[in-house]
Simulated assay, not measured.
Amino acid sequence: MAIDDLLDEHEQGERVRSWLRSNALVLLVGVALGIAAIYGWRWWGERRVQQDQQAHAAYEAAIKQAEAGADNAGAALKGQQGTYATLAALRVAKAQVDAGKNEDAIATLRGIQADPALAAVVQQRLAQLLAATGKPDEALKLLDGHADGAALELRGDALAVAGKRDQARDEYAKALAALDVASPARRRVELKLQDAGGRVPDPAEPI
Rank of each mutant, 00 (worst) to 15 (best):
residue 120 A to R: 05
residue 72 N to I: 00
residue 198 G to N: 07
residue 199 R to S: 13
residue 19 W to R: 04
residue 94 K to I: 00
residue 94 K to Q: 06
residue 203 P to S: 00
residue 132 A to Q: 14
residue 67 E to N: 15
residue 57 A to E: 13
residue 139 A to T: 07
residue 176 L to Q: 11
residue 24 A to Q: 12
residue 55 A to F: 07
residue 41 W to E: 04
residue 54 Q to F: 14
residue 156 G to E: 08
residue 201 P to V: 11
residue 137 D to H: 11
residue 171 E to V: 01
residue 175 A to F: 12
residue 173 A to M: 02
residue 9 E to A: 10
residue 121 V to L: 10
residue 184 P to A: 05
residue 74 G to E: 05
residue 200 V to R: 04
residue 67 E to W: 03
residue 13 G to R: 09
residue 100 G to A: 03
residue 189 V to K: 12
residue 154 L to F: 13
residue 147 A to S: 15
residue 38 I to L: 06
residue 162 A to T: 11
residue 2 A to H: 10
residue 164 K to Q: 07
residue 39 Y to A: 06
residue 186 R to Q: 04
residue 43 W to D: 11
residue 19 W to M: 01
residue 125 R to A: 04
residue 139 A to Y: 07
residue 99 A to N: 00
residue 57 A to C: 03
residue 154 L to T: 10
residue 31 V to G: 01
residue 155 R to Q: 15
residue 88 A to W: 08
residue 142 L to N: 02
residue 132 A to I: 09
residue 17 R to I: 00
residue 105 A to C: 03
residue 86 T to Q: 01
residue 40 G to R: 01
residue 74 G to S: 05
residue 68 A to D: 07
residue 43 W to I: 04
residue 206 P to Q: 10
residue 62 A to I: 00
residue 18 S to W: 06
residue 155 R to P: 03
residue 145 G to F: 07
residue 22 S to E: 12
residue 103 E to D: 15
residue 182 A to S: 03
residue 126 L to Q: 11
residue 67 E to D: 14
residue 97 V to E: 05
residue 119 A to C: 10
residue 178 A to C: 10
residue 50 Q to D: 14
residue 8 D to A: 12
residue 179 L to R: 15
residue 22 S to L: 12
residue 20 L to K: 00
residue 92 V to D: 06
residue 81 Q to T: 15
residue 37 A to N: 02
residue 138 E to F: 03
residue 194 Q to D: 05
residue 89 A to T: 00
residue 115 D to C: 03
residue 95 A to W: 01
residue 20 L to D: 03
residue 195 D to L: 13
residue 65 Q to V: 01
residue 136 P to S: 07
residue 189 V to T: 14
residue 32 A to W: 00
residue 165 R to G: 09
residue 109 L to W: 10
residue 52 D to Q: 12
residue 114 A to G: 00
residue 151 A to P: 06
residue 31 V to D: 09
residue 23 N to Q: 12
residue 71 D to I: 12
residue 153 E to T: 15
residue 93 A to C: 09
residue 62 A to R: 03
residue 143 L to A: 07
residue 46 E to G: 09
residue 102 N to G: 13
residue 156 G to R: 09
residue 104 D to R: 03
residue 79 G to S: 10
residue 68 A to E: 11
residue 134 G to A: 06
residue 36 A to T: 13
residue 141 K to Y: 08
residue 89 A to P: 03
residue 19 W to L: 04
residue 116 P to V: 08
residue 108 T to A: 06
residue 144 D to P: 10
residue 139 A to C: 12
residue 19 W to F: 15
residue 166 D to K: 10
residue 68 A to M: 02
residue 111 G to L: 05
residue 108 T to C: 13
residue 50 Q to C: 01
residue 17 R to N: 02
residue 116 P to F: 06
residue 97 V to I: 04
residue 128 Q to M: 05
residue 190 E to V: 11
residue 189 V to W: 13
residue 196 A to E: 06
residue 142 L to T: 12
residue 63 I to Y: 00
residue 85 A to S: 04
residue 42 R to T: 05
residue 168 A to P: 02
residue 66 A to Y: 02
residue 136 P to K: 11
residue 159 L to E: 15
residue 81 Q to H: 06
residue 119 A to N: 00
residue 162 A to K: 14
residue 164 K to E: 12
